[in-house]
Amino acid sequence: MQQTLEQKPPVSPKVSAPPMAPTFSIPEPAQMPVSADYKTVGVPLVENAKFAMRDVNVFYGEKQAVFNVNLDIGENEVIAMIGPSGCGKSTFLRCLNRMNDTIDICRVTGSIQLDGEEIYASKMDVVPLRARVGMVFQKPNPFPKSIYENVAYGPKIHGLASRRVDLDEIVETSLRRAGLWEEVKDRLDAPGTGLSGGQQQRLCIARTIAVSPEVILMDEPCSALDPIATAKIEELIAELSQNYTIAIVTHSMQQAARVSHRTAYFHLGKLIEVNDTQKVFTTPDHALTEAYITGRFG
C-alpha cells in the first residue's frame, strides 16, 4: 500500500542517534498497545466542520487498513497527517474524495460528510465531488499535453468557462496563484512534462485550483522534490490556506510543523492523536506520538 518512493522520514533534530542499518526496524513498543476500541486523544472534533468523519473504517479485501477514525476538518484549516509508513494516512486521505473507488477491493464504512452531505451515499456523484475536493498527488503527474491544456482541462470538463477568454483568465489566475505564471507565461504551449519536478508539481496544484475546489487534498506533495522546490510548494500551501481547506499527508515532520494548523498522528491505521501542531511537536499527549516525533520509529 505504501509506495516505494517514499523518503525515509528525517530524524528529529532532538535525536542524534547513529544511522540505523536499513534492513533493521525497531518493533512497535510493546508497552503501548492500541486496542480496537481505542479513543483518539487531543481535539479531533471542531465546530463548523467542513469535513466530518465518524467511525471510518477502510478495508482492502480482508485486511483492514483504517480503524474507527473520528475526525473533523474545519473551514480554511490546514491539517497535516503524519505517521510511519503503512499507517493508513494516505488511504484515509484518498477516502475524502473517493479516489479509493478506483481500487476494486477497497471498501469504506462509516460516515464522511462534506458540509453535512454524506459523500459515500449511493446517490452521490463522484465527479462533482472531486471538483469540490481536489487532489494533488505524491508524484507530479501532469498530463502529456501543453501547460495551458493541463490547467484548462478541469474547467473544460466541468463547463466552468463557455468562452475562450474566460478560459484564458482561469488559466492565468490559477498559474499565478500557483506561483508559476512568471516562469511559464511565455511557453504555455510547451508540454507540461517538460517542466522541472517542482514546476510540475506547482502545475498540478494550478490544475487543481483551476476547478475552484473547496478542499485540496495533498498526498505527500513534496516527497519527490528537492529541498528548494519543496520550500516553494510549502510557501504556496501557506498562501492557499487563506482560501482553501487543505489536508496534507506528509512524511516530513518539519513540513507538518511549518504549514499546518493542526496535526493528526496515525499509527497502524488508527488515529492516535489530533492536536494543535505546536502542541503535537512540543508536548504530545500520547506516548506513541512522542515516540514517533522523537524518531524512535518510522
Binding site: 478506483t102 462533482p128 472531486r130 471538483a131 487532489m135 498530463f143
Partner: peptide
C-alpha cells in the same frame, strides 16, 4: 498516475478514458 490526475480533478471515468 495519469488516471489519478484526471480523476483527481473530477474527470469521469469515460472522460478519463477518452481524453487521456
Amino acid at each position: 498516475s495519469i488516471r489519478e490526475a484526471a480523476l483527481g480533478i473530477g474527470a469521469s471515468k469515460m472522460q478519463m478514458i477518452l481524453h487521456h
